[in-house]
Simulated scan of single mutants.
Amino acid sequence: MTTRLNPYLNFRDTARDAMDFYQSVFGGELTRSTFAELQVSDDPTEHDKIMHSMLVTEQGLVLMAADTPNVMPYTPGTNFAVSLSGDSEDESALRGYWEKLSSTGIVTAPLDQAPWGDTFGMCVDKFGVSWLVNIAGPQHQE
C-alpha cells in the first residue's frame, strides 16, 4: 500500500483560478466540484465556490485545493510552502515549472547554485503560495 503526502491549499474565492493556473504550469488532469454540486451550502453566494479540486499529473504530482466557506475564517499564511524536487532540469519539468510559477509572482531566492550543490530557488506565486524548487546536482543523481 502506498502512502502519499499531498499539499492541500485553501483559498478565499480563488481556488478555481488558482487550480487553472497550476494546471497551466504542471499540465495534468484537473477535477473539481462546487459547493452546489455537492450540496454542502444553502448560501447562494457559495454555490460556485470550489468544495474540492485535485490536479494529477503524469509525473505523479498531486495538488488539491478548495475555497474556504464564508462562515470559516480565512487567513493567508506564510507557514506553508509547496516543495518541488527532483533531478529533471529540462523545460518540461522543474526549470519549466519554476519559470511559470515565478513569472507572475515574487522571486524570494533566485533559481541558482545552492551551497549543497543543487540548483535551488524560492518564489511566491500570484496567489500567495510559497514554492521551493530544488534540482538535484550531479552528485545527487543516480
Score class of each variant (00 low, 15 high):
Leu5Met: 14
Trp116His: 13
Leu132Ser: 12
Phe35Tyr: 14
Leu9His: 02
Leu94Phe: 10
Gly137Glu: 04
Gly60His: 11
Pro69Asp: 14
Arg12Gln: 08
Ser24Thr: 15
His140Lys: 13
Gly60Leu: 07
Val25Ser: 11
Ser85Glu: 06
Thr34Gln: 13
Leu5Trp: 04
Phe35Cys: 12
Thr45Glu: 14
Gly86Arg: 02
Leu111Thr: 13
Val107Met: 08
Leu101Phe: 05
Leu61Gly: 07
Arg32Ser: 12
Ala109Thr: 13
Asp125Trp: 06
Thr108Val: 12
Gly105Pro: 10
Pro76Phe: 02
Val133Glu: 03
Asp90Cys: 11
Ile135Asn: 01
Val40Ser: 14
Ser103Tyr: 00
His140Ala: 15
Leu132Ile: 11
Glu91Val: 14
Ile50Glu: 07
Asp112Pro: 09
Gly128Tyr: 00
Trp98Thr: 05
Pro76Trp: 01
Tyr97Leu: 01
Ala15Cys: 15
Ala66Val: 01
Leu94Asn: 02
Thr34His: 10
Pro44Cys: 12
Gly137Arg: 09
Ala81Leu: 04
Phe21Glu: 04
Pro73His: 07
Ser33His: 15
Glu37Arg: 02
Pro110Tyr: 07
Thr34Ser: 15
Met72Arg: 01
Phe35Gly: 02
Ile135Asp: 01
Gly96Phe: 05
Ala18Gly: 09
Ile106Pro: 00
Leu61Cys: 10
Phe21Thr: 08
Glu29Trp: 01
Thr108Gly: 09
Ala66Trp: 00
Phe80Asp: 02
Ser33Arg: 15
Ser41Pro: 04
Asp118Ala: 13
His52Ile: 02
Glu46Ile: 09
Arg4His: 10
Gly117Tyr: 12
Leu9Glu: 01
Ser85Trp: 10
Val129Phe: 01
Tyr8Arg: 03
Leu38Ala: 13
Gln39Trp: 06
Phe11Pro: 01
Asn70Ala: 14
Asn70Met: 09
Asn10Pro: 00
Ala93Ser: 15
Asn134Leu: 01
Phe21Leu: 06
Asn70Tyr: 13
His52Tyr: 12
Pro44Val: 10
Tyr22Gly: 03
Thr68Lys: 03
His47Phe: 08
Asp42Thr: 10
Gly117Lys: 04
Thr57Asn: 08
Val133Gly: 02
Gly60Val: 09
Pro110Phe: 05
Asp67Arg: 01
Leu84Lys: 06
Ala81Ile: 04
Gly121Asn: 06
Leu94Lys: 03
Ser103Gly: 11
Thr57Gly: 05
Met1Phe: 02
Met72Ser: 06
Asn79Tyr: 12
Gly121Gln: 06
Asn79His: 13
Ile50Thr: 15
Ala15Asn: 02
Thr68Val: 15
Val71His: 14
Phe80Met: 11
Val25Leu: 11
Thr3Lys: 05
Pro73Gln: 11
Ala81Val: 06
Glu58Phe: 04
Cys123Arg: 05
Asp20Cys: 10
Gly77Thr: 14
Asp112Ser: 15
Ala36Lys: 14
Thr2Tyr: 01
Gly27Asn: 12
Ser85Lys: 05
Val107Ala: 03
Glu37Lys: 05
Leu63Asp: 00
His140Thr: 05
Pro69Thr: 09
Thr31Arg: 12
Trp131Pro: 00
Asp67Cys: 07
Pro115Asp: 12
Lys100Asp: 02
Arg95Asn: 14
Pro69Lys: 13
Val124Asn: 12
Gly27Pro: 09
Ala65Met: 10
Thr45His: 13
His140Met: 12
Val40Asp: 04
Glu46Ala: 05
Ala136Asn: 11
Gln59Thr: 09
Asn79Glu: 10
Val62Gly: 00
Arg12Ile: 00
